[in-house]
Amino acid sequence: MGIKLGRYAIYALLVLCALYYLFPLYVMVSTSLKGVDEIRDGNLLALPVSPEFGAWAKAWSGACTGGNCEGLAPYFRNSLAMTVPAVLISTFIGSLNGYVLAQWRFRGSEVLFTALMVGCFIPFQAVILPMARLLGMTGLANTTTGLVLVHVVYGLAFTTLFFRNFYVTVPEELVKAARIDGAGFCTIYRRIVLPLSLPIFMVCFIWQFTQIWNDFLFGVVFGGADAQPVTVALNNLVNTSTGVKEYNVDMAAAIIAALPTLALYLVAGKYFVRGLTAGAVKG
Rank of each mutant, 00 (worst) to 15 (best):
G184S: 11
I89N: 04
V230N: 06
L276A: 09
I206M: 04
Y271P: 00
W104T: 14
D37A: 12
V152G: 02
G62Q: 12
T114A: 12
Y265H: 00
V203N: 07
N68V: 03
A9N: 07
V203P: 02
E172Y: 13
V29I: 13
L140T: 07
G279S: 03
I255C: 06
V170P: 10
I255N: 05
F158Q: 00
F76S: 01
P130V: 01
Y26M: 12
L101V: 03
L266S: 08
L80T: 13
V29M: 12
I10F: 14
A227I: 04
L264A: 01
A233R: 03
N235Q: 15
A268W: 05
A102W: 07
V168T: 15
T143M: 12
I3K: 04
P48E: 02
F53R: 00
G67Q: 11
N43Q: 06
M82I: 11
L88D: 12
C69D: 13
L116Y: 10
L129E: 15
C64G: 07
V175S: 04
I39V: 09
F113E: 03
G108L: 13
L217I: 09
V152C: 06
E52R: 08
G184A: 10
V87K: 02
I192H: 05
F222S: 02
I192Y: 05
L80S: 10
G243W: 15
S90R: 02
A73C: 09
V244Y: 13
G139P: 07
G66V: 09
L19V: 15
Q103Y: 08
G279D: 01
F209N: 03
F185K: 05
L44C: 06
P51E: 13
M1A: 14
V230H: 05
L22W: 07
T187N: 08
I93P: 08
F209T: 03
I192C: 07
V118H: 09
D41S: 15
A86R: 00
G98R: 02
N78H: 04
A55T: 06
V244T: 15
T160I: 10
M202V: 04
F162W: 10
I206Q: 00
F205N: 00
V152H: 01
F162D: 10
V15L: 15
F205L: 05
S30M: 15
K4F: 15
A12F: 08
A59E: 09
D226I: 05
I256Q: 02
G119Y: 06
W60N: 00
Y11L: 15
V153S: 07
M137T: 14
T65Y: 10
T83P: 08
L198R: 08
L194C: 07
I188K: 09
V170S: 12
F113C: 04
G6E: 14
G35M: 03
R7I: 13
L135E: 01
